[in-house]
Deep mutational scan, measured.
Amino acid sequence: RLYEREDHKGLMMELSEDCPSIQDRFHLSEIRSLHVLEGCWVLYELPNYRGRQYLLRPQEYRRCQDWGAMDAKAGSLRRV
């Protein structure tokens, strides 16, 4: 689950498959919190699986710093 605000607030989007462009699919370029329910995912800073990568394991991420990012920029997401 992807959230537009910290602490799992605001608009929530659910994802169960790879997403090459978060902007195209959800009209957002920033994700401020996440909740990974199962499996491991890689969040990429840019669309089409480019830029900085962040490995996400099943857990709650209340803010972008929790997954190691300096800002909430999110371009794509892929399951590993």
Rank of each mutant, 00 (worst) to 15 (best):
R25I: 05
P58N: 09
D66E: 13
S16H: 14
D7W: 06
M13Q: 10
Q65H: 09
L55V: 12
R62G: 09
Y49H: 01
Y49G: 00
D71H: 10
L55H: 13
C40V: 14
L37Q: 09
C64N: 03
S33K: 00
D7M: 09
R5K: 15
L56S: 00
D66S: 08
Y49E: 03
R63M: 08
P20N: 11
P47T: 07
C19S: 01
L77C: 08
S33E: 02
L43P: 00
R52L: 10
C40H: 12
L43V: 02
D24T: 10
D18T: 02
H27G: 15
L46E: 15
D24S: 13
I22P: 00
E38R: 10
C19N: 02
K9P: 03
R1V: 07
Q23S: 11
D18N: 13
Q53C: 10
C64W: 12
C40P: 07
Y54H: 05
R25Y: 06
S21C: 12
R63Q: 12
W67C: 04
Y49F: 09
H27D: 14
D24N: 10
C40N: 15
Y3F: 09
M13L: 13
N48K: 10
E60K: 10
W67Q: 04
L34P: 04
R57K: 11
S29D: 13
K73P: 05
S21Y: 03
Y61V: 00
G75D: 04
Y49V: 00
F26R: 01
C64V: 05
S33D: 00
Y3L: 00
P58H: 05
D24E: 15
S16Q: 11
E30Q: 09
F26E: 01
L55C: 09
Q53V: 03
E60G: 12
R52D: 08
R32Q: 08
G10F: 04
C40D: 15
E14C: 05
G51A: 02
E6C: 06
L2W: 02
P20Y: 00
K9Y: 06
M13T: 07
C64L: 02
Y49Q: 02
R1I: 15
Q23R: 12
Q65M: 08
I22S: 00
L37A: 05
P58S: 10
Q65F: 09
D71L: 06
L34D: 05
S33W: 00
L43E: 02
D7Q: 08
M12N: 12
L43A: 01
E45H: 05
R52T: 13
P47G: 05
K73C: 10
E4C: 08
Q59M: 14
L15E: 01
S76Y: 01
Y3K: 00
W67S: 03
D71M: 07
L28C: 14
H35L: 11
G51E: 04
C19G: 03
S76I: 15
L34G: 04
E60N: 07
C64A: 11
G39W: 01
L55S: 13
R1W: 07
N48Q: 14
Q53H: 07
S29H: 13
L28N: 04
G10W: 02
S29E: 12
R52A: 14
R50F: 07
H8Y: 15
M12V: 12
E14Q: 09
R5E: 10
A69W: 04
L46T: 02
R50A: 13
L46W: 09
S16N: 14
W41C: 09
P47K: 03
D24H: 12
H27P: 07
L56C: 02
E38I: 04
E45K: 06
R50P: 01
E17N: 06
E60T: 13
C40I: 09
M13C: 12
C64G: 05
L2Y: 01
Q59P: 00
D7P: 02
P20H: 15
D24K: 09
R50T: 14
P47R: 06
R1T: 08
L15N: 05
Q65D: 07
W67H: 01
D7N: 15
F26W: 14
V80L: 13
L55E: 13
R5Q: 15
P58F: 01
E45S: 11
R5A: 08
N48G: 13
L15T: 07
G68D: 04
C64Y: 12
E30K: 11
R50V: 12
G10V: 02
G10K: 02
N48I: 09
H27F: 07
D66V: 03
L77V: 11
E17P: 01
R63H: 11
Y3M: 03
P20M: 04
G68C: 04
P47W: 02
Y61S: 01
L15V: 15
D71A: 06
Q53K: 10
N48R: 09
K73Q: 09
D24M: 10
A74M: 02
K73T: 12
L11R: 14
H27Q: 14
C40S: 15
H35Y: 10
E45L: 02
S29K: 14
R62P: 10
G10S: 01
E30W: 06
A72F: 06
L2V: 04
R25P: 03
Y49C: 01
Q65N: 11
G10C: 01
E4W: 03
Y49P: 01
D7S: 08
L43S: 02
L46S: 14
E14M: 13
R63C: 11
E45C: 03
E45I: 03
E45R: 07
Q59L: 07
N48F: 15
V36P: 06
Y49N: 10
L28Q: 08
Q53A: 12
K9G: 10
E14Y: 14
L56F: 02
D66A: 08
Y3R: 02
E4I: 03
G75Q: 03
G75R: 01
K9D: 09
H35C: 10
G68K: 05
L15R: 02
G68W: 03
E17I: 06
L77D: 01
I22W: 02
E14T: 11
L77S: 03
S76V: 03
L28I: 15
E14F: 10
R63F: 05
E60H: 10
P20D: 09
L11Q: 12
D7I: 02
I22D: 01
M12R: 08
Q53G: 12
D7L: 05
E45A: 10
E6G: 02
M13G: 13
D24R: 10
A74G: 06
Y49S: 01
E14L: 10
R25A: 12
S16E: 15
G39V: 01
Q59W: 06
D7R: 06
A72G: 12
P58G: 03
Q23L: 13
P58V: 07
K9E: 15
G51T: 06
R25Q: 10
L77F: 08
D18R: 01
G39H: 11
A69R: 00
S21P: 05
L11T: 13
D66Q: 06
E30G: 08
G68V: 00
D7A: 09
C19R: 01
L15D: 03
P58L: 00
A72T: 10
E38Y: 08
Q59E: 07
I31M: 05
Y54Q: 03
P47V: 05
H35D: 12
A69S: 13
D66M: 06
N48P: 04
L37D: 09
P20G: 07
A74I: 15
S21I: 02
M13F: 09
Q53D: 09
Q59N: 07
E17G: 11
L11A: 11
N48S: 09
A74T: 11
